[in-house]
Nucleic acid binder design. Structure first.
Lengths: 348, 348
DNA sequence: TCACGATGTGAAAACGCTTGCACAAGGCCT
DNA sequence: AGGCCTTGTGCAAGCGTTTTCACATCGTGA
C-alpha cells in the first residue's frame, strides 16, 4: 500500500517530476514515456497521496457544509445532494453542526473551518451580522442556502411565497381560523426560515381579509414532537383552529397524530398542510408544499465549486453575487379539505 | 489568515519546533515560554494547517464510512452518530456510497479510500467475500456495522431475532397468513440484513406451527414506494394476508397507505409491523421493532477509534475481534391487532 | 551549416508541519 | 569539585507531492 511516487519513478526509470506529469495528463510528456509510467503505476497499485498533493498545491479540496444538525431529514438530503456533486469534482465535504454544544457561538469563536476548507456552504445559518462578518473575515469563499444575504451569493426557496401558497390553499377552502406551527417563539436556532414563513402566513391572511390572531401561532421546533406539543396547545384553546399550517412536514405529522388522538377527523374537522414534501409525506397523505432539497444541495454545491474553480483560473474580479430562487409547488393530498360547517371540539 | 508556524516562531523569538511543542502541550517546554508562544499564536490567529500536520505525522485523521447511500433515514442517522464521536477525537468522516453508478464493483475496483482514511466502517456492506478480501488487503483497519464477518470486529442488531420478535408479535395476535415485505427478490444491494430478517420470519412461523408460503414474501426495496408496490402485489393475491411484517418502517408506511386506500382498516383488517422506529413512526402509530441507530453509529465509531489509537500506542498484537450485538425492542402502537374473524378483501 | 524554437526530462525548491538528535545549562549526588 | 541526569531549546531531516527552472535533444528554416 505504501508505494510512493518515488517507487514508481524508480521502476519506470524516470524522475518523480515526470511521473507526476505523466499521471496527471499534463503536456510535455512523450507518449511512450507516459504509457510506461502509467503501466508501472498501475502494476504497483500506485495512487497519489491526497494529503501530500494538497499540501503541495495549496488547495484543500474540501468544501465545508455548515448546518444546524445532520440527521434531520432536510439536512441529510441536503448533505447527500452536496456530496454528490462535490465528489465528482474531487472535493470532500466536511460537515459542521451549529446546534450542538456551544452552538453557533462556538462555531464563530473557533472558526473551525480555517485552513481546512476551500469554501463554505452556510445552510440556514443562524448567524447575526456580527457573526457573519467574523466568518467572512476569514476570506473563505461563502455561499448561503435557504436565506439571502447581501453581498453573498446563495440560493433559497421563497419561503414567504411558499407559506403564502400553503395558507392561501387553506383560505381558499374557506378556513378562517388558521393556526401556524413554526419555530418562532423559543427559536432554538434563530434562523430566518421560520420568520419568512410567518410573514407569508400573515400575508395570506390579510389577502383573504382575515385578521391575525397571535394565539394561533405556536412554536413547533421543526420536529414531530414539537408539532405534537403545538397541536396540544392549539386544541386546548377556547376556539381551536379549523386548519393548521405547519412549517415542516415533520411537525405536520406530529400535529395530525395529536388531532386524531383527540377524536378529530383530518381533514373532516381539521385541515393540516406542511412544507417540504418529506419522503414519507406522500404515504401519509399529507398535503404540503414541495421543494426539491437534493436539487438545492446539488445546485448550491455547483455554485460554490464554480466560484472556486474561477478563483484559480480567472480574474480575481469582484464576483458578481447571485441570488437564485428555487421553486416550490403545492401538492394537494388528503389532509386538507373544506372548512367544517360547525367547528368541532376535541372530545375529552 | 495565512499565518504559518514560522510567523509565530519569529514573533515569539523561538524556533518552530518549540512553537509546535508549546501549542500541542508537549512536555519539555518552559512554562514561561509556552505562555508566550500561546499568547503570540492567539494574537496572530494562528491555527495549524491540518494538511501539513497530517502529512508530517503520517496519519490522515479521517475515518471512512461506507454506506449504500446517504439521505436515507437509517444511514443519515448513522452518519450523524459516527460524526459526533469522530469529531471529538479530531477525526473527519468521509462517506463513500456504494449504490450509486458503478455500485460496489466500482468501489472495490478503485478502492477510493486508499491513502485517504485511517480506518473504515463498513455499514451493511454489500460485498461478497472476494470483494471483502480486496478491501481488507489494503491493510486499512476495518469494522463492520449491521452484519458480522469472520475476522472483522463489528456490531449489529440480531436481525433474525428482531424479525422473529416482530413476527412472533403477529402470531401471538392469532395471525396465520403473515406476509414479509423485504428486499430479497431483486436485491438492489445484496446485503445480509434482509436475509437475516427473512430467516427470523421463517423461524417465527415454524415456532407458531405455521407453514411458509413463498407467495407471501415480496421485495420492497426499503423505500416507501417499494412498500407500496409490495402491498399492491399482496392484495392482488387470491387470499391476501391478514398481517404484514415489513423489514423497515418506511416500507411499512408505504404498505399501510396502500392498504387503507384499498379500503382495508389497519389494524382492523390488516396488521402491519415494521423495523427501525423511524423518527416519525411514533406519529403514525406504527408498531415496530426499535433500534438505536445513532447509538450504533457512536458505538461503531468508538470501536474503530479505539483500534486506531491502539495501533499507534501499543503492541501490534493480533487484535482480538469483537462482535457486539445491539438490542432491539418491540414497540406496540396502533397498526397491529388481533386477527380479524373473517379475512377482508380489498374493495375494488 | 548554424542558430533557434519546440519538446521532453530531471534537479531541486517549495508546501507547513513534526520529531529525532545534539547540545547547553543547571541541579543533584558522591 | 566533578560527573551525571534532567530540562529546555534549536537544527535539520523528513512526510509525498507539485512546479519552476535549467538543460539537453531534435528538427527546422535560413
Amino acid at each position: 500500500m505504501g508505494t510512493t511516487i518515488e517507487d514508481v519513478a524508480r521502476a519506470a526509470q524516470v524522475s518523480v517530476a515526470t511521473v507526476s506529469r505523466a499521471l496527471r495528463g499534463l503536456p510535455n510528456v512523450a507518449p511512450s514515456t507516459r504509457e510506461r509510467v502509467v503501466a508501472v503505476a498501475s502494476r504497483l497499485d500506485y495512487v497519489a497521496d491526497p494529503t501530500a498533493s494538497r499540501l503541495a498545491v495549496g488547495r484543500r479540496m474540501v468544501v465545508g457544509l455548515v448546518v444546524p444538525m445532520l440527521g434531520q431529514w432536510y439536512y441529510a438530503k441536503l448533505f447527500s445532494g452536496v456530496e454528490a456533486v462535490a465528489t465528482v469534482s474531487g472535493y470532500d465535504v466536511l460537515p459542521f453542526t451549529t446546534s450542538g454544544p456551544g452552538g453557533s457561538e462556538r462555531f464563530v469563536r473557533t472558526l473551525p473551518f480555517r485552513k481546512r476548507v476551500d469554501g463554505l456552504i452556510l445552510a440556514d445559518a443562524p448567524f447575526d451580522s456580527d457573526q457573519l462578518a467574523a466568518v467572512t473575515a476569514t476570506g473563505v469563499p461563502i455561499v448561503t442556502l435557504g436565506t439571502f444575504t447581501a453581498g453573498i451569493s446563495g440560493i433559497a426557496v421563497d419561503n414567504a411565497a411558499a407559506a403564502q401558497l400553503a395558507v392561501g390553499h387553506l383560505t381558499g377552502l374557506g378556513h378562517t381560523r388558521i393556526a401556524l406551527i413554526g419555530g418562532i417563539a423559543d427559536d432554538p436556532f434563530h434562523f430566518s426560515v421560520p420568520v419568512d414563513r410567518f410573514h407569508g402566513y400573515q400575508r395570506a391572511l390579510s389577502a383573504a381579509g382575515l385578521t391575525y390572531d397571535p394565539s394561533l401561532v405556536v412554536p413547533g421546533n421543526f420536529s414531530p414532537e414539537g408539532g405534537a406539543e403545538a397541536m396540544h396547545q392549539l386544541l386546548a384553546a377556547p376556539t381551536p383552529p379549523t386548519a393548521v399550517f405547519a412549517c415542516s412536514d415533520e411537525m405536520a405529522i406530529g400535529a395530525i397524530q395529536v388531532a386524531r388522538d383527540a377524536g378529530l377527523g383530518v381533514p373532516r374537522d381539521l385541515s393540516v398542510i406542511g412544507i417540504d414534501d418529506h419522503d414519507i409525506s406522500a404515504y401519509v397523505g399529507l398535503t404540503t408544499i414541495r421543494q426539491d432539497v437534493i436539487g438545492q444541495g446539488e445546485r448550491i454545491a455547483q455554485l460554490l465549486l464554480d466560484r472556486l474553480e474561477g478563483f484559480e483560473g480567472g480574474s480575481h474580479a469582484q464576483e458578481d453575487i447571485h441570488h437564485e430562487a428555487h421553486p416550490t409547488r403545492l401538492v394537494v393530498r388528503r389532509t386538507t379539505g373544506p372548512k367544517p360547517p360547525v367547528a368541532a371540539h376535541p372530545r375529552e
